[in-house]
């Protein structure tokens, strides 16, 4: 009964997007990590949407899906190589999380199947959702870092050293609880606005 209620709730398609995003949200526990993951997500998302659209146009889904996976892997390798050159330290901290991006092509393809891929408006809506998701990743990193240590290391403030606020925010549990609070707040606001 519970899964039925959740499964049929409005905006289920967008919830599949959160499925793709959630492991990345768990990994984004600082502003720096969130920004890098958010930017990578944006690039990846645009890329996958483009391939999915082309696949529908040419009616060669399997071929294009295979190409999509391989090209996505090459893109990820390229981004990783650049990151290794620019900042080896950041590369070491990001490297284990970036493999999550390879789960994105199948998840996003499944999502696109459910949102009328031939509809031109779906492309723009998809790109908008992608941009919001990228921003969400960066925002999540910022909020979690701030709540955990009372400061943001990227802004020159000591994080986790001078103050310990909510250290669990750095743990994966922090991502789920923060997401729950955000959803509850959104639900509360939408109910209030509907009533007013």
């Amino acid at each position: 009964m519970v899964t039925e209620a959740l499964g049929q709730a409005p905006g289920r398609e967008r919830f599949i997007l959160v499925a793709a995003l959630m492991p990345l949200l768990v990994a984004a526990n600082s502003l720096q990590t969130g920004l890098v993951l958010g930017l990578m997500y944006l690039v990846f998302y645009g890329f996958v949407i483009f391939f999915a659209r082309v696949a529908v146009f040419f009616q060669k889904r399997l071929l294009f899906f295979t190409l999509e996976c391989l090209a996505a892997a090459l893109l990820l390798s390229l981004i990783l190589s650049l990151l290794r050159i620019i900042s080896p330290f950041l590369f070491e901290s990001i490297y284990p999380s970036v493999f999550m991006f390879m789960v994105l092509p199948p998840v996003l393809s499944a999502w696109l199947e459910g949102v009328a891929p031939t509809d031109p408006d779906a492309l723009w809506q998809g790109l908008r959702d992608g941009a919001v998701s990228g921003l969400l990743l960066a925002g999540f990193g910022l909020i979690r870092e701030f709540l955990a240590g009372g400061g943001i290391a990227s802004f020159g403030q000591a994080s986790g050293l001078s103050a310990i606020w909510l250290p669990f925010m750095l743990q994966p549990a922090g991502a789920f609880i923060l997401m729950a609070i955000i959803l509850a707040l959104l639900s509360f606001i939408s109910r209030k606005m509907g009533r007013d």
Binding site: L6, A9, F15, F176, I177, M179, A180, L183, S187, F188
Partner: peptide
């Protein structure tokens, strides 16, 4: 009402 559905599910997962 605000925490019913997904919010409470996510809180449970977090715990």
């Amino acid at each position: 009402a605000a925490v019913r559905g997904r919010p409470v599910l996510l809180m449970t997962i977090g715990l």
